[in-house]
Design a protein around this nucleic acid. Sequence first.
DNA 1: TGTACATCAGTGAACGCGCGTTCACTGATGTAC
DNA 2: TGTACATCAGTGAACGCGCGTTCACTGATGTAC
Lengths: 205, 205
Amino acid sequence: MSKRGYHHGNLRQALVEAALALIAEKGPQGFTLSEAAKAADVTPAAVYRHFTGRDELLAEVARQGYEIFAALMDYAYDNGQPTALSAFEATGRAYLAFARKYPGHYQAMFESGLSLQGNPELAAVANKASGVLEKAATALSAHIPPEKRPPPAMFSAHIWALSHGVVELFTRGAPGTRSPFPPEDLLEAGIGIYLRGLGLLPPDA
Amino acid sequence: MSKRGYHHGNLRQALVEAALALIAEKGPQGFTLSEAAKAADVTPAAVYRHFTGRDELLAEVARQGYEIFAALMDYAYDNGQPTALSAFEATGRAYLAFARKYPGHYQAMFESGLSLQGNPELAAVANKASGVLEKAATALSAHIPPEKRPPPAMFSAHIWALSHGVVELFTRGAPGTRSPFPPEDLLEAGIGIYLRGLGLLPPDA
DNA sequence: TGTACATCAGTGAACGCGCGTTCACTGATGTAC
DNA sequence: TGTACATCAGTGAACGCGCGTTCACTGATGTAC
């Protein structure tokens, strides 16, 4: 911690980052306002210059997470050209990559128990993130034989759920089981089988 | 609460049930030893006659959950005869049914952050539960065309992850999204597509 | 059947702790003259 | 360039709270005689 005077400089963001480190290290319940303040070398009361309280700080962490998440998904989508299929697969991979690379954000978003109700700004940015996956699903939808075409929202939900389940069950020292396979491989294979079921991959691949 | 004297009768199980109700109502973090004791009409100190502390009470809740879960999965498996396929599908449905019917147990097992490390008894009963799904997957494995046959542990993990993701994301007033579809339908459709991808369902169903 | 007694499940008071939050304050910063 | 002053980001002490846990105790239960 460099010498700083009475004033911090950018305490707001420093608190967000302290919270992220705490959450990544000890889980969403390990985060407390007091410890975040201490990690930022500041009195707990100083937090109230920047946030209305504990919940708003946590919400800001999640908000930044959704922002990064949406950008990452969008990047993966664009980058996943040339085909709608490869773009879609890329967003699935991006989900897991995000969870791995930004564990603090991920847990704040999905495991901290904060509610999107009554926080319109947070809900909006969350929708932005899920919008990317639905966009990818819609684009892909055109390539699905009509007789087995589910609504795009449905198979984007499937991929989302599968990805989330893999993260929750198999990426940490999680309950239930230790990972029988590398999570990336598990997800990749699962998505592959699923897309084959949709008729989007050759049945003998 | 009926009149009871100084002695409770079966406080141990009453505390487990109080904890379950608290968890189901307010989430795993809403559970405290003190509130569970109060709900059972007893002083917090009385808890220590039956458990070494808060963690052991929570672990017992989870243990009973795994027990019920394993029994339910096993029942679904047997009941899913006549074919390996229908038995497998039944276990998938049982996962979601369990989460719905026993939300307190479910959250204690998967969302309370308790660790299976250093609790061999809990780990054993957890393995019993996942063992059923693997058994179902292994039986099904024989029917998969060899060139697209993943290890049974892998597709049981896929189904487990998909089910878990659906529960986490779409069954409560969850973060991320409100459910676009009834979770049961979502899971059923997802498993269907997945099994078609494995060559276990006709491609045109 | 009646009494003495051991057991042990529960009480209730107390503890130390860390939490989120409040408040009057202080002192560094940067602007006006 | 130098001084006076307003701003406001941070301090530090204090609060009430509920938590998990401990301890000496009490009184209901059930057994031995």
